[in-house]
Every structure is written in C-alpha cells, then in structure tokens.
C-alpha cells in the first residue's frame, strides 16, 4: 500500500497515470450495458420463439417494429428530460391532445395534406411542451408537480376538444391513415421516421453545443452556472423538444390505430420512462445514450408483444412493467455506486 503511494505521488507534478485496476462487475455492466441488453433481447426472442413459433414471423416482427417506433420516438425526448434530472408525466396527455386535434382537423377538412396534419400535431405538442418548459425553467416549479398538473389539463382539453366523442377510422381520409401504414422503399414510414429521429437526435446531443449543454446541466447544475450556461434555457428547450416529439407521436398514433379518443395513450408515459431507465438513462442526471434507449424500447416492445403470445394474461402487463422500471432503476443506482467506489479505490489510500 505505502509503496504505491510513493510511486504515484513521488513523480513530479501530477504525472499520475491512471493504472488499470481490476474492473469490478458494476463497471463492466456500465460499459457493456448495450451488449447485455442486446444479448437479453436475443435470448428472450429465442425463448419466446420456442414456445410460440409464430413469434419470429415477418408480420409479427414488423408489428413489433412499428409499435416500438412510437415508443422510442418518445423515449428520445424523455431521455433528454431525465438527463436534466427532470421527469415528464404529461406526455401521454400531450400525445392525446395533439393526436385528437389533428384527427379533428383531417375529419373536418379531408383534403388536407398529410404533412400538414403532421405539422399541426407537432405544433400543438410544441406549445404544450413550451408551457411546461416555462413552468419548470422560469417559474421554478418541480418537474413532477408541473407535469402532473398539466397532464390533467391536457387530458381534460382532449375530452373538451372532442366533446367526449371518438374520431374513428371512417372519418379519416386514407391519405392520413397512410402516414403510419405507408411504406417507402419497402420500409414502413413509422420506422423511417423513428430512425430519422435517432440520427438527428444523435447528432444533436453529441455534436452540437446545445446538446452537450443538456448533459452539462444534468451532470452538475452549479458548475453549469459558473461556466455561463443558461440552465433555464436548456430546461425550456428540453421540455419543448419533448412536447414536439409527443405531438408527432400523437399524429402517428392516431394514424396507426385509426382512431382518436379521449383516453388515448393514457399511462403511456410510464412505458416511455421504463424504456429510458432500461436503456441506462440515470435518474440522477447527466447520463444517457441513444443506443441505450433504442434497445430499451425494443426490449419493452418485444415484451409487450411476446407476453400475450406465451399466454401471459394481459392483466400481468402492468405489474411486469412496474417491476421492470423498479429493477432497472435499482440496477442503475447500484452500478453507479460501484463505479464511484472504483474511482475511490484508485486513490489507493
């Protein structure tokens, strides 16, 4: 022990090379989380396939993929929110209100171009997100309180907008429904949109200043102030992006299921949060990767699809989802503790 101190501190200056101490289990999990998730997904798929051969058919896989697309689009936004140490419970309601309004729009003006419908959904989502952003960033309301309150406001607005009625398939023009069912180069639009969003988001969070500042604010808010980062603006941006993505997801959802209801996607925020924590986004802030949440979403999508196929009652679904969230956040916390402990061990005292 003592000799080691002499060696490290005896070198002039701070020429302390970090050695390569034995990696602990938790550090390994931290490093290879994505691989582990992938392995788990494969194992799960094989297992389900053995029980029910209709699982790995082209049809079912594309069904999983389109379902996962919407989930993962939302997970991208939620990841940004969680990185800043926040949480957004309102996204299910934002999704519903923007889906409902764009559905009403196309049912009243069937001639409208589908892109315009998408734009209207995104616009409404952005407004919803901005309101929450203002409340969190400038009025200084805790994210949980702000989003819990606005969740109910948006949900109420959805009912009010539709007068409690549904907008159903026959009221929607085919062009609108084709947003989710159409294909380009043989690939479903939803998947294309989701992939496009991953790419843009990846570029945004790892190659632009604003993107990196989201991480900075989450990693250490005090340092961010001293570095001259306007954290209010970053928070506002994050909730606005979340709103915009929820708006987009709202249009896609309504188009895919060809119905808009007052209780569309109620409780969906929980799946999205589950996808994030499964993907390794740390509730303590500052940590999260696109690849992680995509895998997290895929895993959740497969679970949702596979459980009924292996005769698990749908009533188990909620319990399983909650357990996944709890276990994932506990593992994340333990992994982080392990890494911190490893850093301490490096001090060799």
């Amino acid at each position: 022990m003592k000799r080691q101190i002499t060696e490290s501190a005896g070198v002039p200056g701070a020429q302390i090379n970090i050695g390569k101490p034995a990696r602990s289990v938790s550090e390994m999990i931290g490093k290879f989380r994505e691989l582990g998730l992938l392995g788990f997904i494969l194992l799960l798929s094989v297992g389900v396939q053995l029980r029910n051969p209709s699982f790995l058919t082209w049809e079912n896989i594309s069904d999983i993929a389109t379902n996962t697309a919407i989930l993962s689009i939302l997970a991208v936004g939620m990841m940004l929110v969680i990185i800043t140490r926040g949480i957004d419970l309102s996204i299910g309601a934002t999704l519903a209100v923007s889906g409902m309004i764009s559905a009403l729009l196309v049912s009243h003006y069937p001639g409208i171009h589908p892109l315009l419908a998408i734009a209207s959904g995104i616009g409404i989502g952005l407004i919803c997100g901005m309101v929450i952003g203002c409340l969190v960033a400038w009025v200084n309301i805790l994210p949980i309180i702000a989003t819990l309150g606005m969740m109910n406001v948006y949900r109420g607005l959805t009912f009010e907008a539709s007068g409690g009625k549904w907008v159903s398939a026959h009221q929607m023009p085919t062009g609108f429904k084709a947003i989710a069912t159409g294909t380009l180069f043989g690939v479903n639009n939803l998947i294309l949109i989701a992939v496009a969003i991953y790419i843009v988001a990846y570029y945004f969070i790892s190659h632009t200043r604003s993107g990196r500042r989201i991480y900075a604010v989450g990693s250490n808010p005090d340092s961010a102030t001293i570095s001259g980062i306007r954290s209010g603006r970053v928070l506002w941006l994050v909730y606005t992006i979340m709103g915009g993505l929820s708006g987009l997801a709202g249009v896609l959802w309504v188009s895919k299921f060809a119905s808009a209801q007052g209780d569309t996607a109620s409780g969906y925020e929980l799946s999205v949060i589950a996808a994030c924590v499964l993907g390794g986004v740390s509730i303590a802030g500052g940590v999260g990767k696109i690849s992680g949440i995509v895998l997290g979403s895929v895993l959740l999508g497969i679970l949702n699809n596979a459980l009924p196929m292996i005769d698990v009652s749908p009533f188990w679904q909620m319990f399983i989802q909650g357990t996944i969230i709890l276990i994932a956040v506990l593992i994340n916390a333990l992994v982080k503790r392990g890494i911190d402990r490893n850093h301490l061990m490096r001090r060799k005292i």
Partner: peptide
C-alpha cells in the same frame, strides 16, 4: 414505480 406495481 411502486404506483404501477401496486395497481398492477
């Protein structure tokens, strides 16, 4: 998380 689990 427990909210979902308990209702689940």
């Amino acid at each position: 998380a427990t909210m979902i689990i308990y209702r689940g």
